[in-house]
């Protein structure tokens, strides 16, 4: 099965480790051969299991098969339908949520992989009845039409502002290129982000 040239293209590493790898791996790996007994503790989930997430600040348990995406769990199990399923392949950004404070595509991860993690959706963006400045700025600048991408745009834009929204149009656009708006409210979205970043929203 292996091709002949594999051997010549592999460098077998002697001794403890490559310096960098050792630093990265940590003690569990260094204990290599002795660790076998611990393996029985690794649980193999086959079929439905209960997964607990921290969703919008509260624990939320869902019973899901392993192949259920975080997106489907949020929408169909927790009925947090503000997060949208656009392309279901990481190509549109409509499902953008935060996991542990980072914006990600909820369609591109499994619910079970996020067990115990903190997930924030559009429903959790503003804790009070007051609008988040971005939400207000989106309305004022008409930064949406059909509204289907809007949750994802706002969840994405909030992180752009948090990181310091780029001043140039190119820079701001690059930061928002993962969120497609097929109605193409793009200039309005940029304006809304700028307003919110400037505290005008």
């Amino acid at each position: 099965m292996a091709k002949n040239d594999d051997i010549t293209r592999r460098e077998f590493v002697e001794g403890t480790a490559v310096a960098g790898a050792a630093a990265a791996i940590g003690p569990s790996f260094m204990a290599s051969s002795a660790a076998a007994s611990a393996l029985s503790s690794v649980q193999i989930v086959d079929g439905a299991s209960e997964v607990t997430l921290q969703v919008n600040g509260k624990p939320a348990a869902v019973t899901v098969d392993p192949h259920v995406t975080l997106l489907d769990a949020l929408r169909e199990k927790l009925q947090l339908t503000g997060t949208k399923k656009g392309c279901n392949q990481g190509g549109c950004g409509a499902c953008t949520v935060w996991i542990d404070g980072e914006r990600v595509n909820a369609c591109m991860t499994l619910a079970i992989m996020q067990e115990g993690r903190s997930v924030t959706t559009i429903e959790g963006l503003s804790e009070s009845d007051e609008l988040h400045p971005l939400q207000a700025a989106f309305i004022e600048n008409d930064a949406f039409q059909c509204g289907f991408c809007t949750s994802g745009q706002i969840m994405s834009a909030a992180k752009v502002i948090e990181a310091g929204a780029p001043e140039t149009t190119d820079g701001l656009s690059e930061a928002m290129n993962g969120n497609i708006c097929r109605c193409s409210a793009y200039p309005q979205i940029r304006a809304a982000i700028r307003d919110a970043a400037a505290g005008k929203g």
Partner: peptide
């Protein structure tokens, strides 16, 4: 401003799949 703007920015606008 859009009369449904509040619903849309809050993720409360209900689409068929919701």
């Amino acid at each position: 401003a859009r009369v449904d703007g509040l619903q849309k920015v809050r993720g409360q606008a209900r689409y068929t799949g919701d």
